[in-house]
Each structure stands twice: as structure tokens, then as C-alpha cells.
Amino acid sequence: MRKRARRASMLAAAIAVAATGMFVAAPNASAGPSDVANPGFESGNASWHEKVTPFAGHPVNNSSAWPARTGTGKAELGGQGLTGMSRISQQVTVPASRVPVLSFWVRSDVVHSGASGFGFRQLIVEATAEDGTPYELHDRMNKGGTNGSYEQVTVTLPDAFYRSAPQKVNISFTVIEDAANRMPFLIDDVAMEYRFKRIDRPVTIPGGIFRPVGG
């Protein structure tokens, strides 16, 4: 009698699960190391495209005036004391059927510039899909600052970057500034991790598990 009652209970539970559409989630997992080239800028501006306007200069440097988080190389965006824009970018290939997750370390000190107070500086991090559509991943102003230390930012790219075929993606870090504040945004140790997508699958009941119980 107990066996019969236990099997009947299991069958009822299984039918209830199937009827309510309950799902079991596939686990998240890493799918290989980052393919960002020269992620810590230790090889200078190798693999990174630099653009500064209207002034000249190289955002990627190893100046000790603004130290790197690790090693000696880092990207120093802004801090020119002029109205303009500084940008670094790199193209990476997102593997098929993987979710790209970007991480980087940023430092943005804050100083008062006399009567002008906080200068305007804005960091914008974008990913541009293969079709040319840009997606803003992260932005911040210099007013908050990071108290003289680096902090890590991690962001999962939108669904537009999850495809059944590999996709070339451009990652960019841009700083727009005015002439009031010469403090730069510092970027170091950039990485792109690829994960398996979380997929919810319906629970299925294998045939032959539940058999009629004879009287």
C-alpha cells in the first residue's frame, strides 16, 4: 500500500510540474579566456586605436604622474585642460552563441578648479555591433570620483551581441571634457569574458518511469 501511495504521489507531482510549465535553468559557465589584446596597455598602444581631437597626443602611456593599476601602462583619457574628446577602441570577435561580458578598471579623481568648481568630464563606454549600431554600456561623470583608487566595472552586453555566428564588435572608451579640469579618467586591465547563455528548459518526464501498480 505504501509503495502504491508513494508512486501515485510522485506521478501527481510530475503531472503538476508539467502542467504549470515549470522550468529548470541551464547553468552559467565561462567559455574561455578574454581575447582583448594588450589588455593592460603594457605594450603601449599596440592593438588599440587612439583618437584625440582637437588636440594631439597619445592617451595610452606609462607616465608615472598618473600610475597604472597594474604594471606601468594605462589609458589616460581627458585631462588636457581643453574642450575636446579622447578615445581608445579595439575590435574583438564575439564567439557564436556566447554572452560577452566586459570588465575594466577605472580611476577618476576630483579636484576643485578655483571659481570654476568641478570641470565637466564624461566617460562613455560603448560596444558597436557588426551592423554599425552603437550601444552604450556605461557612463559616468567626474563629479563622483573614485577617491584616488581604481574600481572595477563589469557589464553584460545586450542581446544584440548574442548571435548564432561569430560577430566582430568594436569596444570604445571615450571621454568628453571642457577646459576647467585637467584630471583624466584612467582605464586599465580591460577584459572580455564569454559565457554560455542561461536557457530555461521545460521539465520532461522520461517514459517508462511510472507504471501502473497492480491491485
Rank of each mutant, 00 (worst) to 15 (best):
R7C: 02
T154E: 14
E50W: 08
A179T: 07
I205R: 02
S108Q: 12
I88V: 15
E42M: 00
S64I: 11
P95R: 15
S116L: 13
A160V: 05
K197N: 03
R121H: 12
G114H: 10
P54K: 09
T20P: 00
Y135P: 00
L137Q: 08
S97W: 02
G81L: 09
F185I: 04
K168N: 14
G207D: 09
H112I: 12
P27Y: 10
F173Q: 01
A26P: 00
R211W: 13
G57P: 01
G73M: 03
T83P: 01
G208N: 06
Q91G: 06
A46Q: 04
F196D: 09
G117L: 14
P95D: 13
P206H: 11
A115C: 00
T20S: 12
E76K: 11
G78K: 07
F185P: 04
R6H: 05
T128F: 03
I176D: 09
D35R: 12
W48M: 01
V99G: 04
P59E: 02
P67V: 11
T133I: 15
V153S: 08
A75G: 08
S172D: 12
S63G: 11
S149R: 09
Q152L: 02
S172L: 04
T20W: 09
F120A: 09
I176K: 05
G32M: 07
S9Y: 03
K143P: 00
V213M: 10
V106L: 08
E42G: 03
T70D: 05
S30D: 14
F55M: 07
R201V: 07
N181M: 03
A115Y: 09
P134C: 09
M183D: 02
D189G: 05
K74Y: 07
L137K: 06
P27K: 11
V125R: 07
P59V: 04
E130I: 04
G117E: 12
V60L: 01
G117Q: 13
D131N: 15
W105F: 13
G40Y: 01
V213N: 00
F173G: 02
D139S: 14
Q152I: 02
M192I: 11
E50Y: 05
S34V: 08
Q91L: 12
G73C: 06
G44D: 05
S149D: 03
R198S: 06
A19Y: 08
I176S: 13
Q90F: 10
V52K: 12
G21C: 03
S164M: 08
A18P: 00
G215W: 02
S89L: 01
T156M: 12
R69G: 02
F55Y: 13
S9W: 06
N62Q: 11
P212T: 14
V52H: 06
T156L: 00
N45Y: 13
S30I: 05
V60I: 14
G207F: 04
E177H: 01
A25Q: 12
R98K: 15
S63D: 08
T154Y: 13
A26N: 14
M1V: 12
Q90A: 07
H58W: 05
G145W: 05
Q91F: 14
F55I: 02
I171G: 02
